[in-house]
């Protein structure tokens, strides 16, 4: 029911079911739709408190109705992700829409978040269904397997799914301290089995400056 119209518009066909989407991201619809803001990402009082405390704010609305609804946000590229019982980790700023059946939550990411400039927490989506995530430029999906770990620039990381361990590595040498660094002082390393979404653009991070 999620389909892409071009690379920047998400069309969702609905027959009485509901989706969660970023607040204000509807650009057009036909048929009958109702929009309702979900406080705390629709995770109840507990989610509301957690999101306040962790700073992983996500303003989400519930869209329900019959017809087709189109979503887009500031001309960002959109990627569709299908979840079959596994977990998707995505920055709340990259989240566009998901089936209402997917559970959302927050998890601790450790030092990676600080280097990304996104805070220490990230949003998770879990269950069976589809989700749409946004990236600055078309994202590539890179597979990580036991033999092939992957290292990613924190500013270009968008999301990941599957059974992955992440560790933070720094390439800070004496050159960095002299201001002669290559601009790649921090990286995130993924090991295990899963998929990583990487965008062809880098957010402003502390790591990019050194």
């Amino acid at each position: 029911m999620f389909r892409l119209q071009g690379s920047k518009v998400l069309a969702v066909d609905m027959t009485g079911d509901a989706v969660k989407a970023k607040n204000g991201s509807m650009v057009a619809y036909d048929g009958e739709m109702a929009f309702k803001k979900l406080s705390g990402g629709g995770e109840g009082i507990r989610g509301m408190v957690t999101r306040r405390l962790t700073g992983e704010q996500m303003t989400v609305m519930e869209v329900k109705g019959h017809g087709t609804c189109w979503f887009a946000d500031r001309a960002s590229e959109i990627n569709l992700v299908t979840l079959q019982g596994d977990k998707l980790y995505v920055e709340s700023s990259n989240f566009l829409a998901a089936d209402a059946g997917l559970r959302t939550g927050t998890t601790f990411t450790g030092a990676r978040g600080a280097a990304q400039g996104n805070g220490l927490f990230t949003t998770t989506l879990e269950g069976h269904g589809q989700a749409a995530i946004m990236s600055d430029g078309p994202a590539v999906v890179l597979r990580v397997s036991a033999q092939y770990p992957l290292t990613v620039d924190p500013g270009a990381y968008v999301a990941h799914q599957g059974n992955l361990r992440q560790s933070f590595q720094s390439g800070v040498t004496f050159r960095t301290l002299y201001g002669e660094g290559g601009g790649e002082a921090f990286q995130i390393r993924f090991e295990g089995d899963g998929l990583v979404y990487v965008q062809p653009s880098e957010r402003n991070t502390i790591a990019g400056d050194v």
Binding site: K8, N23, G24, S25, V27, F35, K37, M61, W70, A75
Partner: peptide, 21 residues
């Protein structure tokens, strides 16, 4: 929900919508 105002277009024709607000 950030969608308080909407333009309702009815009749016969085409509307062009951009992928951005």
């Amino acid at each position: 929900s950030g969608e308080a105002f909407q333009l309702e277009l009815s009749g016969n024709g085409t509307v062009y919508v951009q992928a951005s607000e």
